[in-house]
Simulated scan of single mutants.
Amino acid sequence: MSRFRNAVLTVALLAVAGVAAAQSTKYPGVGRNATPKEVAAWDIDVRPDFKGLPAGSGSVAKGQDVWEGKCAHCHGIFGESGEVFSPLVGGTTAEDIKTGRVAKLTDPSFPGRTTLMKVPTVSTLWDYINRAMPWNAPKSLSTDEVYAVTAFLLNLGGIVPDNYVLSDKNIRDVQARMPNRNGMTTEHNMWPGPEFSKVKKADTSNVACMKDCTPEPKVASFLPDYARNAHGNLAEQNRLVGPQHGADTTKPEPKGAGAAAVAAPVAAAAPAKEQAKPAVAAKPAAGGADNKATLALLSKYSCTACHAMDKKLVGPSFADIAKKHAGKADYLAGKIKNGGSGVWGPIPMPAQSLSEAEAKTIAAWLAAGAGK
């Protein structure tokens, strides 16, 4: 037993020594240096000179299959997009591909700006698709699928032919055909090194001033009632997704103008008679703990990227689904798992990668009323 105890102690001491050695020398006792494997998992960026681009290839035909299965529900079959996202394709011509400058970017009569009109580097397309798409499962595409989807998108814009196979070997040839490749300037010293710019002096040489600092300004102004809705309701002029939703300018600002009044609860501006009404006790939601577990699942699988609790985003709100399909847990589980289209509008929902048990958990929560 004594020999066994000594062996265990020796192993334990070696383990502690290994942890200590792995800790960061810059901040003793705090964390450890990342392993090469951990760094490689994050080091996935592809630069305009194609440094970082992995080996692989993908055809336009393969890209169409991947696109229709994983991309079209948000970006449209032909890159025209739907109700929420900006179009990816359109606004470029064969002449733009020759010159490398998109003429419609300076045409004030053209209705919008598509991705292929603006993006100057094919590496940007490849990198973004690789790290962020599809929206509900980022980084889930294989390297060859990223090449294929990029090839299909370029084909939609007339940049590569129908039979093209994009690869790390020929992507530089494609760069020479990007419609807005000459619309980007690098003469501003914002790149990390001299390989993209001849400018040696930075744009600015300001230094931080840490004396005689002016006090932080406090904004106390507000829109007067007569000007509040002068340009229409701001809430209706913004998309339903994103940080800026716009104030409802059809309604007057709360009484007692100023920042404090705007931030005050709406109930504070309600008539005293209404405030005097006894509060109706809220009905407790059934299965509070289960609701929290379900909400965690919605976050885990990015369901909230397309669905909100009580308003439409890309898809219907959870409250609307619960109202329309109350008690239909089995039906909802199938829809969640397999996806579908045509029930709530033109934008289809793709099949989801969650397990059967998780799909049933979310379906049961919806069928029971989608409690918070």
Rank of each mutant, 00 (worst) to 15 (best):
P265W: 09
A34Q: 12
C209V: 09
Y301F: 14
A72Y: 13
I97R: 14
L88N: 06
G29Q: 08
A270N: 08
T150C: 07
T106L: 11
T150S: 14
V165M: 08
K277W: 04
A322Y: 06
P271A: 00
E38G: 06
K251W: 11
A55E: 10
N206T: 08
F318E: 01
A247L: 12
Q175V: 10
V102N: 10
N238I: 00
A264D: 02
L166A: 01
G58N: 12
L313W: 04
K323W: 04
A257D: 06
E253C: 00
K324A: 13
V66H: 07
T185N: 11
P278R: 09
A263R: 15
K372I: 00
P108A: 15
N182K: 12
D107V: 10
D144E: 09
L116K: 03
M349H: 11
A329Y: 03
S142Y: 02
S317I: 14
G232F: 04
P346V: 12
A322G: 13
L105K: 12
E80R: 12
V219F: 15
L153P: 00
K337L: 14
T10N: 05
A17P: 04
A72W: 14
F78G: 10
R181D: 14
H188S: 10
L14Y: 08
A267H: 02
A370H: 06
A289H: 05
Q352H: 15
A230Y: 01
P217Q: 02
N291V: 00
K104L: 15
A319L: 13
A269F: 13
A279T: 14
K283R: 13
A286H: 04
